[in-house]
Structures are given as structure tokens and as C-alpha cells.
Design a protein around this nucleic acid. Structure first.
Lengths: 336, 336
DNA sequence: CTGAAAGCGCTAACAT
DNA sequence: ATGTTAGCGCTTTCAG
């Protein structure tokens, strides 16, 4: 009570008049100790204010109690909801999240390998689609779940129907009468970029619509690149009447830039994004987009990882998360 | 090489032909070992692929290597940049961030006390202005830095010029000729809410402008509450010609809702936000706002905390971060 | 059902 | 400058 030092298991054992082993058992498997002893121990715990020292427990149990989350950029709000989903599963399971930014700062690759091989984590959640899959092989790397598409990787993953999402966007626009549909991609080399673009092109073909290379503009998921795409669109001779952008952030940047130039959305051009970030519904007009349930994504990834850790395997299930079209005011009938 | 088990300090000692103590020294204070031994040890480290086991090191050194970050809601993108700033200092200092959501889930208060008293962290960064200061007193609570205003607390803090920011907004609007200026606040009880509202009222008084209770609307920092404020504004008999909202998110929600109703910004009403979140410049019109350098905030908080931990004190410096007005298209001359 | 004892891997006195 | 030694606080056989 008076002491400012935290109580140890020894203190509890002394107060309860039992051995430290019994205290430990009472806490981790209460049912194997006799009722009377258990009560004595629990009241000693309460009296001393004892809390297990996680560090010591982890050392003894040869685990770290940590899950490493690899993401490209902490400051990107896109990930925060996935993190919330992860946390909602990890925290109750007594794991803490160690968040590592894979892009910020120099020698990212080296830091990464350091993390992976340093035995700092019992498991891995990878949110960065640009990482090379080889990085994640090797005997010292803990069980990992990918939260992104990844060509040729057999690791368990939680993925989103990216191609189908793109097709939903195209079909929605085609249903509105658009025949000239453009696309703004993510950064080259990113798997999301590829799968969404492929889905886009295939859907166009399925609808018998032209795939026009000039109408496929390169972006990088940021608002700035969306604004740049808007400028590029203005300079096109033959302009598409609708644009599908590979992220809401780009769509917002694009829509803002268009509106600033007096181009009306959706009267002059229809806009579809991807993600359904919160702000999409608060813009004017509201942004038509493809909804990804980001919290669910985090939850499922964490659940799969917990299963893998519990069963001491590097293999786990994979899961595809369904996407939906959310129609709003930024899309309308094709002009003319 | 062949073994899938990670090497320990013993393995390195054996390979290098020295004691474990020497290996430990070579790694933590290289200058106290002889050059020859150091080289032998380092090559043994390379050969074995040794990495220090942080858990064991922490246990022995009676520290946790962890800084606990308390925030109201992980999913709120507002905090992600502060986190990035924190991480940029903490990671090189060999501390990892444990992020705890203080609002999500039940018994938040209890979980919090649990965290604080469980000795899980060497330091604390508090981003949640609604926490009760008493929670952070007590002998078992580690050194803490507050990143928010907090009445009557003497803990070290990194704060923003909230009152001055509000005054900047008011003066900007008054300079544009507005005499009827309204305000949308944050949630009641929040310190940001209070200080910004007070700054707002004082600035109005300083300019000889009326403080009209009907023109002070309650929000909660979310876009939804901004949209609600827009609806409330529409129902006012005597409408202010300008609104200062206590967060960009509210300003965005408000502006979107106004525009959807055909009300023009800034011709019919001028809008000023607070934060300068990234999207502010991509809206149409761009959002006039008060810039808070969020990454810097995180950096300074982490630096102060590292100092406190290093010098084993619970007292540290405090710092006020300067804010700036960023004028954009959402503000214009008063109508008439 | 409970206790004794042996470490997990590391660091920091203390010796030499 | 280096080695010896004693734990940090906990969990887990292994006996009883």
C-alpha cells in the first residue's frame, strides 16, 4: 500500500502463504487450484495490488507478446481504421501492436529485415503491398498475414475484391450511359494498382466499351495526384465523361481541382472513387465510391493471425472481403 | 546458419572466445573493450546472426522499452500524423509505442488504470483531453507528457495556441467586414472546446463585435456534427455571415451540407476551420483554417518524454506550438 | 493439489 | 580490459 514499488509474485505468495507457483497457477489456470487457496491468493493479489510483469512472463514463456504491423505510412488515415480493427482483437488477446513504418526514413529495407529477424514479434501483419515477398520468407520470420493482394504469395491473407470493385464502378457508369470512361491508377508496382486497373479494363471489355490508353492516368493514391489527374484530364483532346479513381483520396483531389476550374460534377464529368472513407458522404456532391469495410479487414486479419500463433503454424486461412458500390451525387447520366 | 533457433549471447561468447559480459559490453558500450576483442565479437555476431533479446534485456534493466500513447480513438485520422511524429523520435531511441484507445470499448477507465499501474510502460503520452488529471497522479504512473491543454495540470505538456488560433480566425473574418460571426464548438468538457471558444469570445469582444449565444452551436469535432450545425444555421432567424468551426472535420461537414442546400461558400457564408488537415486545400473552395503542425507536436512530445525518462524525473519542460492562419477560398467579404 | 527448483537471456556490480 | 556471478520476475516441469 505504502510502497511505491510494484508488488511481485513473491510478495503475493508471502501474503497468501503459498508458493509462487501457486500464485502463477491461480492467475493463468484458476481451475487447477483448490477453491480455498484460490481465494486466498486472489485476496492477496488485491491487497498487494499485484500485476504480472509481462516482460518477465514473456521471457520465461519464450514469446514477445507483440504483433508487428508493417505499413507504408503511419500518417495515412486510410490505415487507421484497419489498425482499430486489429487492436480490437489483439488487445483482448494480450498482444500489443508494434507499428513500423516501412517507407518513412532511410534504409527502410534494412530496418525491416532487422525487425523481422530480431525475434521481436510473435506475428506479423503486412499492410504494405510494395514489400517484396522474399523479405517475408526465411525461418526466423514469424507467422504472417498479408492484408493486400500479392502476386504469387501463398501466405494467408485478407484481401478485398479489388477487381470486382473496379467492375462495379464501370458497370455503374456504363448503366448511366457513359461510354468514354477513364481511370486514374495507384502508383506503379503496387498490387492494388494492378488488380484494380485489370478489373477496370476487363469490365470495360465485358461491356463492349473501348479501352483507351490516354484515358488511363497514373496517380499514387494521394489527393495531390488526383488534382494532377484533373489537370491532365483538362488537357485531353477527347475527354472521358467519367473517371474511376483507384482511391477516394485521389477522387477528392480530382473533384476539388475540377470544381475549382468551373467544371461541374456530375454534369460535365462523373467521378467514382474507391474506399468509402468517411468524408466521401460529406462532400458536395457526395462521392460515389466502392466501400471496403476497413475495420472488418483488421479484425479478420488479427483473428487469422491469433489462430496461427495459437496453433504454432505459418499456414492459415485466407479470406476475401466483399465490396459494395455506394452511389452518391458525384455520378450522373452521361452528357448529351 | 543451419539452426532455425536464434543465437543467444552465449553462442556469440563461445564463438568469439570471450565471456558473455564482454559481448554485452561490445554491443552497448563498444569503447570500453579492446579493439581486438571488439572485432572478434563483432565478427562472431555477424557469423551467428545474433540479435539482442529485448525482452531479456528489458527484464534485466528493469524497464519496458515501451511508451504508452493514450488517444481517444485510433480511427481518427487527426492523430495519425502526431503518431508519425512520435514514432520518428521513439523508434531511433529504441522505444516502441503501445497505442491504447481510451474510448472504444467498455470500461475504458478501468482498462486505463490497469495500463497505467501495470508497469507496462516507461512513459506516457496523453492525447486525450477528456481524461481526468487524477488518473495520472499516483506513484506508479510513469513520466507523462500531455499533448493537449489541461486545466490546472502541472504536468509537462506540448500545447497549441488554441486561444490565439481562434483569435486569428475572428480577426481574419472581421477584417473581411464580417460583423455577425458564429462558432461551432467541440464536445462539452473537452479542453480544446473551452479554450477555443474562450479565445473566440474574447477576440469578438476585442473587436467590438457582438457575442450572440444563438450563434454558438455545439458540435463534437466530427463531420456529422458539422453537417448538423449547417442545418441549425439554416434555421436561425438572424444568421451569422461567417462561421468559425473548432475543427476542419466539422468545417468540411458543414460546408458540404451548406453546398448541398444551394448555399454558396463564401458568397453567402464564410467558413473557417481549425487544424489544416490535408484535405483542406483540396476542397472547392479551399478551406480557410488554422494550421497546427501535427508532426512537430509529436516530435516535441517524444523528445520531452525521452529527456524525462533519461533523467528519471516526472518533471519536464512544456512547450507551446505556434499556429498560423491559412487563408483560402472559403472566406470572403461579408455579404451586402 | 501444491511446493521446490531450474532457468528464459541478459546486464551490472564486483573482482581480477 | 575482461571474467565471474548474481539475479530481474516469472512459469513450468518434476516430485511429493
Amino acid at each position: 500500500m505504502m510502497d511505491s514499488k510494484i508488488a511481485t509474485i513473491q510478495d503475493v505468495a508471502r501474503v497468501a502463504g503459498v508458493s509462487t507457483a501457486t500464485v502463477s497457477r491461480t492467475i493463468s489456470k484458476p481451475d487447477v487450484v483448490a477453491k480455498a487457496t484460490r481465494e486466498a491468493v486472489l485476496s492477496a493479489v488485491a491487497e498487494t495490488g499485484y500485476r504480472v510483469n509481462t516482460t518477465a512472463s514473456n521471457l520465461r514463456r519464450q514469446r514477445t507478446g507483440t504483433v508487428l504491423v508493417l505499413l507504408p505510412n503511419i500518417a495515412n488515415p486510410f490505415f487507421s481504421q484497419i489498425l482499430a480493427g486489429l487492436a480490437s482483437v489483439l488487445t483482448p488477446a494480450e498482444y500489443s501492436m508494434l507499428i513500423a513504418d516501412t517507407q518513412t526514413g532511410p534504409d527502410a529495407d534494412q530496418r525491416l529485415t532487422h525487425y523481422l529477424t530480431s525475434g521481436q514479434a510473435d506475428g506479423l501483419v503486412v499492410l504494405d503491398g510494395t514489400l517484396s515477398p522474399e523479405t517475408l520468407s526465411g525461418p526466423l520470420v514469424p507467422p504472417a498475414v498479408l492484408v493486400c493482394e500479392w502476386m504469387g504469395s501463398t501466405l494467408p491473407s485478407v484481401r478485398v475484391e479489388n477487381a470486382r470493385g473496379a467492375a462495379l464502378a464501370v458497370n455503374h457508369l456504363a448503366d448511366l450511359g457513359h461510354r468514354k470512361i477513364g481511370h486514374v491508377t495507384g502508383p506503379p508496382g503496387n498490387v492494388l494498382t494492378e488488380t484494380r486497373r485489370d478489373g477496370f479494363c476487363r469490365a470495360l471489355a465485358d461491356r463492349g466499351l473501348p479501352v483507351h490508353d490516354d484515358w488511363i492516368l497514373e496517380g499514387d493514391f494521394t489527393m495531390d495526384s488526383g488534382a494532377a489527374a484533373a489537370r491532365a484530364w483538362c488537357h485531353l483532346e477527347d475527354r472521358p465523361t467519367a473517371l474511376f479513381l483507384s482511391s477516394d483520396e485521389m477522387a477528392i483531389g480530382c473533384m476539388g481541382a475540377l470544381q475549382s476550374r468551373g467544371i461541374r460534377v456530375p454534369e460535365d464529368v462523373s467521378i467514382v472513387g474507391f474506399d468509402n472513407i468517411e468524408i466521401a458522404q460529406h462532400l458536395s456532391p457526395g462521392l460515389t465510391t466502392i466501400r471496403q469495410p476497413r475495420t472488418d479487414i483488421g479484425v479478420r486479419a488479427a483473428e487469422i493471425l491469433m489462430d496461427m500463433i495459437a496453433s504454432k503454424t505459418k499456414d492459415g486461412q485466407s479470406e476475401i472481403i466483399t465490396v459494395h458500390l455506394i452511389p452518391r451525387g458525384s455520378t450522373g447520366p452521361a452528357p448529351e
